[in-house]
Amino acid sequence: MSSTTTESMSPREPGSSPARPGSSNAGRSLAGPGPTFIRVLNSEVIKFRSLLSTLILLASTAVVMVGFGALSAWGTGQFADAANRDPQAAARVAAQGGDLTVSVPTSGIAFAQLILGSLGVLLMSSEFTTGMARSTFAAVPRRLPAFAAKLVVVMVTSFVVTAVSTWVAGLVAVPILDNYGLKLDLGSSQSVKLLLVNSIYVAAVAAIGMALGTLIRNSAGGIMSLVGIFFVAPIAFQLIPGDFFKEARKYLPGNTVEPLTAAQHIPDTLEAWQAGLVLGAWVVIPVLLAAVLLKRRDV
């Protein structure tokens, strides 16, 4: 902040000999290994897996994803049964391109996004609410390696948990759908695309959550902001009349998944490449802002 702090960068030990300028000081810090990124990552992994609350949130995500997959398979089967008897419903099914079942495994994604997004918030906000941040940033005083390591842990875990639960949800859904004579091919390109895009999306939400947790430093405030962006804003934008909000709604992060996974372009949504860029911006901007402020603010 102030220019006077840079003074301290030059060693000013009166007794240091001019032959080895500053080297005697620097040498003392080389007493042993320091915090490299890999070590900090290892530390963040230990912190992550040693919290029961984290593991509970991960398990709930899996349960919700698989549960909703099963429910959705059952509902889709019932709907298809009705459609067979009702020509109107049959016409509606046909209008959807006939591929009813492919989105069954990801039907719980809204909840996965909420749980893992909150996890992202909590992992950082709890550092500040518990005082752990002082230990973390005393060990890694440059701060950004710890931030980056935590981000990697949050995003990778969210991606893997979402992908695995989506896949298991699919495995559970296949026999249920089979009962109604419906087919779900988990290996089809559309199934794989849905699984990957949704998992990346949830990882992105978790990253946004972590950025909010870093900026707000308060668990309730961070989670409320996350809910505001992903659940309240889409509804509010729909209710407010006017073209601006209709247009703006497309750019909300929650509305980027549809264009990214659709087989064909859906009217009133972004193109797939635009949606990818918008989602990327929703991650990069808050994360960079959080990183800059984390580096500058007092812990």
């Binding site: 301290s8 960068m9 060693p11 003392r28 810090s29 080389l30 007493a31 320091g34 915090p35 005083p141």
Partner: peptide, 13 residues
């Protein structure tokens, strides 16, 4: 030891 804490290579040591 002549360096700001932040600039030490292995601060905890």
């Amino acid at each position: 030891n002549g360096l700001p804490y932040v600039q030490h290579k292995a601060p905890l040591r």
